[in-house]
Design a protein around this nucleic acid. Structure first.
Lengths: 193, 193, 193, 193
DNA sequence: TATGAATGAGCCTTCATTCAT
DNA sequence: CATGAATGAAGGCTCATTCAT
């Protein structure tokens, strides 16, 4: 079906673009690069996205919100500290399962973050919400919700970054507890709901 | 004096370039942009740096190592937890004192970090060293030094980022204790040396 | 047909470039010059050649080897002195038939000769071979083959040059016998095989 | 004396420029190259010549006419064939004594020849005159003077070129007789005056 | 509809020339 | 006078985008 064919092209382009953007950055990746890697023509690309920049923005937004959903799902339910631990574990797991996607999100954030539309739920929102829940339920210390959430996210992101850039050689999986313990010891009140 | 004039040109270019790189990134900033903003000719730039890439790398390396030195100085001496708290306070202070520099370091890291020569001491090294000292002296929990250091750095960086991008509206100064308390509660053993 | 269009572009560029290189030399001819003269865009040029230098080298190599083949054909067979006379006649004829090509070969030789790949047969090789044959068959004096060949080629080239530069106003056609007689009287043994 | 100092600068520039022009061609040699090699400032150059092109033209014209004088002197007197033989010997000798100058004359001729003012005596004129004398005195065959002269000059130039470009490995000195014999056998009537 | 050749604005860089010191 | 930093036009080349086929 033509619909499927089109979807195929979209997917091939999406995967190729993410991989290339992750390797070289958006600016350094050319339309020709993407088209060749995806096995489509350069013109075909413009049938689905209006420009290279829009492609990057759309891809980033999609990955970014997909990440939010996955994170929310991975967090599950229960007391906030437990949910945060699961978030950390899941994030570290993602890098090992899909390093290209992780690198893409990392590398493109400064280019693309400003282009993400306002209403969408972001991974930051997800963690903020969990922290907010924790404060409400008394399991997380009562402090600036955003500040605590960014503390958690920062810890995750930088550990991932150091792994991706090769400074951290220990497998991320082995660090989940180290990071989560340190973080949760800092954020938790110790009281369970 | 010609010496001063030369320094002036260098400094004007440096400041203009840092501001522009911070606004738009290295790739999106043109030589013409920099020359115009600095009030010098395009050619003049090549008397001081061999290429745009080298300019970016030199600027980044200089700021990056200056940051390391400042961080080390700001940390002072004493038990690691106290030194880390001072690092956090200093970093948050820097953003309010020199937002352009902070944005430059944040935005250029993915472009320029790979170009920083190997031997130099980085801000990451500084924090790692402090954490390492803390572990040695028993004031910091005994865990992967890099992971803990990146947890601290990530917390700092992401809080700065959220401030720079306007998500966090509270002045960073008011968040020092929130972030430091959470982090240090997580990292400290409670034992002082 | 697209195939023809492509060939057209290549040919238009080739002809324009040869003419311009012949007028001003490779270095002094700009890509813009060529594109304008050929009626194509500047970028189009890079679809066929990787750089201006490669364009010049490819064009020169093609003309240079085409010249070799023509020379060899024009020489025909028979005793070396007769073949050399035909070479001279043919070379002088070429200048009148295609002065642009001749000028191009003359003007570009210092720029482009070093870029011609080693294995190719050059016009110099052709004349050397004829002289070598002549020595072997006893129709040419027994002396350094290269030196004799360059004597012949030099006589041809300089007469062409003086014609192209307007010093020699007599039509080259009328000089074939003058030059050939002088040269062959000098090279021949007088013995026919 | 300042006059001497100026002359020194002129000479240093001249020698450096000739060497560089001979190595890389006029276009590829920069003012900075010349100034550095000559040990003078870039601005100093403009005190003696109005532009790089004028420098090249002046240098070429000077070498070109110096060559004429040397050639005329070297030719000496006597029957034309003997004088031509001395011309050949002298030219081949020059290449071994001053290869830079020879290369410069060879390489720059297409760029600079059109700029040589009309009235000056050129090496071509010198040979033409000798050939003309030869015809008048009956020692050279009665044919187009220019054509015969260019035959001689071409033989010289191409043999030098093949030597300079490394195709001819035999020392030029050993080829004087080969080339001169062939040429003079072709041009002479055999009658001495 | 898909293709990929063509376009041309714009980029980085060079370098002849000028001129303040 | 000599110097060499500054200028800025111009060059070669790239690449996002368009459009004829």
């Amino acid at each position: 079906m033509s619909k499927d064919a089109r979807s195929d092209a979209r997917n091939k382009v999406r995967d190729a673009a993410i991989a290339l953007f992750a390797q070289k950055g958006v600016k350094a990746t050319t339309i020709k690069d993407i088209a060749r890697a995806a096995g489509v023509s350069e013109g075909a690309l413009y049938r689905h996205w209006a420009s290279k920049e829009e492609l990057a923005a759309a891809l980033f937004a999609a990955e970014y919100t997909a990440l939010s959903h996955s994170l929310r799902e991975a967090a599950g339910s229960g007391p906030a500290p437990q949910r945060l631990r699961r978030v950390i574990a899941w994030a570290f797991g993602l890098v090992e399962a899909a390093p290209g996607r992780a690198r893409f999100l990392l590398l493109s954030q400064h280019d693309a973050l400003p282009l993400v539309p306002d209403g969408l739920e972001t991974p930051v929102d997800v963690v903020c919400a969990i922290v907010g829940d924790g404060i409400a339920e008394g399991s997380v210390v009562d402090a600036d919700r955003e500040a605590l959430a960014h503390t958690v996210i920062g810890a995750i992101v930088l550990n991932i970054q150091s792994h991706v850039y090769g400074r951290q050689t220990a497998p991320l999986g082995t660090l989940v507890d180290t990071v989560a313990d340190a973080l949760l010891r800092g954020l938790s009140t110790g009281k369970e709901t």
